[in-house]
Structure formats: structure tokens, C-alpha cells
Simulated assay, not measured.
Amino acid sequence: MSRYTRFNTHWIGTQTLLQYLKGKKHSTIYDEVKFAMIPGGSALLKMNDYDGKMLPYIEQFLGDSKGKKLIVVHTSGSHWNYSARYPKEFQKFTPGCNKVAKSDPSTCTIEGLINDYDNSILYTDFFLFSLVELLKNNNGFLIYVSDHAESLGENGYYGHGGPLIPEQTTIPFIVWVSDPFKIRHLELVKAIETHSGSELSHDYVFHSILDCAGIQAKVIDKNLSICEKLKDG
């Protein structure tokens, strides 16, 4: 038996939502979900805008209405071109890739490529910290997971979408919970902590979000939820 819970849902991102899929077969999410559009359309303001430009809109979503909320944040993160993913004040590692026209990562020096990538990671760290600051007084939790990793020239591979090697598939799975959430759901927090350091997959995202949100349904596999204690052995 399923138990239904109403959530006010927002999707925001610096990558396009590919609206040409609307109305196409097997693309019902574009027809059934009310996407929160911002000035400029589904892409955020303009192509290659920094992820931080989403923060004021996320803050607005959090204060817009009462009730439960699900906010999906689709970042550009460390997608190529890495040097376009962070503002100048986050250019800590130098030199970068100084080519004006960078057709693909292999056109950069390895040193410049890695420095630009590390700067993009530094900016992602700032962005996640900013999300935590927005959420810390709310009864909520944050799950951050990359959809893929990046090769930076190892064994001649660059970018993503290549062979299933560690540089392409090893990604972060980060979970943060607010103090109000800890107070209300201490047992869930203890369950989450048992998964620290364990190997997880994207399969956990769907089941964990529903289970941690208190939704009950037959489709939820509790063996793939971080809100269920990890069994010993």
C-alpha cells in the first residue's frame, strides 16, 4: 500500500532542460512536472552561466510557500570547458589552459587542464557550502551526486562517456542533514551514518529520496536506501 505525500517541486539548472523532448514518446516528465522557469527559459539566463547564479532562485523557492519541498538542482559542475565553470576569484591553481579556442581537453597541457579542473571543483565546493547555508535552518537534507567522472589525460582519455575505468566512474555521493532534521529524525541520521565509506551507486538516489522523505510505496527498495541501516557483513 502506498502513502502519498504532496511536495512542491522545483527543477533548476544551468544546463538546458531540452524542451524539444516535450510531448515526445517516453518523455512524459516534461508534460507532467511543473518546471520552475526563470528569465531566459530553461537554460539559466545564458549558456555557461556559473552555478552560483542559481542561488537567489533557490533561496526564493525555499521561501515561496509552506509545506514540503523537493528542489532538484542540475549543475554544470566540472563539465568541459573547465575554465568556464568558475569566476576569476576562484582561479587558485595556475597556470590554466591558456588557449583562446579550446576545441576539446586534449588541446590543453596536462598541467593547465588539471589546474582548470581543480578550480572548477573548488567552485563546486563553494556552491555546495552555499546550499548548506540556505538549508541549515530548515528541516531537510541534501543529496549531492555526480552523474559521471572525468578523465584528465590518463591513458590518453579525456572528458567523460568513454570506457568504464575508475577515472570515468568514480564519483562523490555526499549526504548532509540539517540540525532540525537530526532532532526530528535521529534514527534516520544514524542509518545514514552506517553507509559512510561504503560503495554506493546511482540506484540509491531514487530509493533514498523517497524513503528518507517518509514516502511508502511498493516501488521503494529499502536495500537501496541510505536511510536504512547498512547490514553487517
Results as ranks from 00 to 15, higher is better:
K22M: 06
L55T: 10
T109G: 12
L186S: 14
G67D: 09
S151K: 00
L128T: 12
G13L: 10
H185E: 13
S76F: 10
T107A: 12
D179K: 14
F206V: 13
G63R: 14
T169Y: 02
E154G: 07
D179M: 08
L17K: 08
S151M: 07
W80M: 05
G52N: 11
I121M: 10
L128D: 04
Y82E: 00
Y158H: 03
V189Y: 04
E133K: 15
T14H: 03
G77S: 08
S201L: 10
Y4C: 13
E167T: 09
I215F: 02
I38M: 11
Q19W: 13
K88W: 01
T194S: 14
V100Y: 05
T107C: 12
C227M: 07
K102E: 12
I192D: 01
K222H: 14
E111C: 01
N155V: 06
D104T: 15
G40W: 03
P95F: 02
C97F: 00
K66G: 15
A191K: 05
N139C: 11
G214M: 09
L230A: 10
T194I: 06
L164R: 13
P95E: 02
E193C: 04
S196W: 01
Y50R: 10
H148V: 04
A149H: 00
S65G: 08
K22E: 10
K69L: 07
L18V: 05
P39H: 08
K69M: 09
L18Q: 12
T75S: 10
N223I: 01
F173Y: 08
I220G: 08
Y123V: 05
S65Q: 14
S78M: 06
Y204W: 06
G162E: 02
N48V: 06
L18N: 13
V100G: 04
Y50G: 06
H207T: 12
R3S: 12
F90P: 03
G40T: 10
N8Y: 08
F127K: 02
K22F: 00
E167H: 05
L44G: 00
V177K: 03
C212S: 10
E187H: 11
K22T: 13
Y30G: 08
A191Y: 00
L62R: 07
H160N: 11
S106N: 04
I58E: 04
D116I: 01
S178W: 02
L186T: 13
Q216N: 13
K102W: 02
T94H: 05
L142M: 12
Y30D: 10
V132Y: 04
Y204F: 15
E167F: 00
D118H: 09
N81G: 02
N98L: 15
S27H: 09
